[in-house]
């Protein structure tokens, strides 16, 4: 009995010694068969257990189990070690130069004018405005007359107009949409209207026969100039993503009274005066004002019950300021080297 114990002990010591440094999968598998397989010494001992006396049987069984558990544990440990080493080797072999460039994935871009327009539109939508569009080929009435610009009004000179027929023209502003909406909608009205407009200008760095405007209109009871200021101020702050300084400066438009231009503090020089702001410290951003009572009357809205404000901005102008573009022609040349930058 004692001999048997000694033998098992010996097996254990020898086995552990032999396993200890084996990190080869094949060799380890062979050793596992040698020590724990059906032809192993330990197995044959366990088979002989029945030959022992009842009390001894239990003891021998326990010793055999304990030893084989111990060995199994060591084998598992070594197998894990081997796997780990193998994995490390594999990973090592898969090494790449991570500084090589990524595979080229070409995605397109929206035109910079669309990108700016989307920003503007999103802001007004979040303020509850409706986006509407109108025709580009307009009647004289909608483009001028209804907007308090009668025939021979000097303002018509400053907006050189492309005519299709005597009373049919390419709209010079997005404001006719105001009239079309007010004619068919009872206040409250809260709209913006982006679109193309046309002026008989030859093209240069700051003029183009085709350009884009965004018009805004809000008509309701008790709308004040304070409402106009607040709306446009939060708009521009959101658009610039910072707390820009603004100023409202009196101006003149035939279809608003009072009229104003909104300037923002020059973002290049911070108001000190530079070439961008022509030393004024401020940059003109948009025109606005309270809807002229005559314009409301023209649309059968009673100016004693309702008032409203309107504004209009030039998309190209804003985009030029935002993207630091000096030449408007770039927007319409569509050079991919230009388009890919936005």
């Amino acid at each position: 009995m004692e001999d048997l114990k000694k033998k098992i002990e010996e097996i254990e010591i020898n086995a552990l010694k032999e396993i200890e440094n084996v990190i080869d999968f094949k060799k380890l598998t062979e050793l596992k068969i040698k020590y724990l397989g059906k032809k192993s010494e330990l197995f044959s001992i366990s088979k002989q257990i029945g030959n022992f006396e009842k009390e001894e049987r239990k003891e021998v069984g326990e010793i055999v189990n304990k030893t084989s558990e111990k060995l199994k544990l060591q084998f598992d440990l070594n197998f894990k070690k081997i796997k780990k080493i193998e994995l490390e080797k594999k990973l090592q072999n898969e090494k790449v130069d991570i500084t090589l460039p990524g595979e080229e994935v070409e995605i397109g871009k929206l035109h910079p004018l669309t990108q700016i327009l989307n920003k503007i539109t999103e802001i007004f939508i979040s303020l509850g405005f409706l986006v509407v569009k109108g025709p580009e080929i307009e009647t004289d009435y909608y483009n001028f007359e209804a907007l308090n610009i009668p025939k021979n009004h000097p303002a018509r000179d400053t907006q050189d107009t492309f005519y299709v027929e005597e009373n049919l023209l390419l709209r010079t502003q997005t404001s006719p949409v105001q009239i079309r909406i007010m004619e068919k909608t009872k206040p409250p009205i809260k709209i913006i209207s982006p679109g193309r407009v046309y002026r008989a200008d030859s093209i240069d760095a700051t003029h183009s026969p085709v350009f884009n405007q965004v018009e805004g209109l809000l008509v309701d009871e008790k709308i004040t100039m304070a409402n106009l200021k607040a709306t446009l101020e939060i708009f521009i702050k959101k658009l610039c993503n910072k707390d820009v300084k603004t100023r409202f400066r009196p101006h003149h438009f035939p279809f608003t009274e009072p009229s104003a231009e909104m300037d923002i503090e020059c973002f290049k020089c911070g108001g000190k005066g530079c070439s961008l702001c022509k030393n004024e410290g401020f940059i003109e951003i948009l025109g606005c004002g309270m809807v002229h009572p005559k314009v409301l009357e023209n649309c059968n809205i009673n100016p004693s019950n309702f008032s409203g404000f309107a504004f209009g901005l030039g998309l190209e102008r804003i985009a030029m300021l935002f993207y630091d573009i000096k030449d408007l022609r770039l927007f319409y040349e569509n050079n991919l080297k230009f388009l890919k930058q936005f």
């Binding site: 509850g128 809260k190 607040a230 101020e233 939060i234």
Partner: peptide
């Protein structure tokens, strides 16, 4: 002139 946001809401928007 103070800045006061208008309270106008309309049925149709966006």
């Amino acid at each position: 002139i103070p800045c006061v946001l208008p309270c106008t809401t309309t049925k149709n928007f966006g």
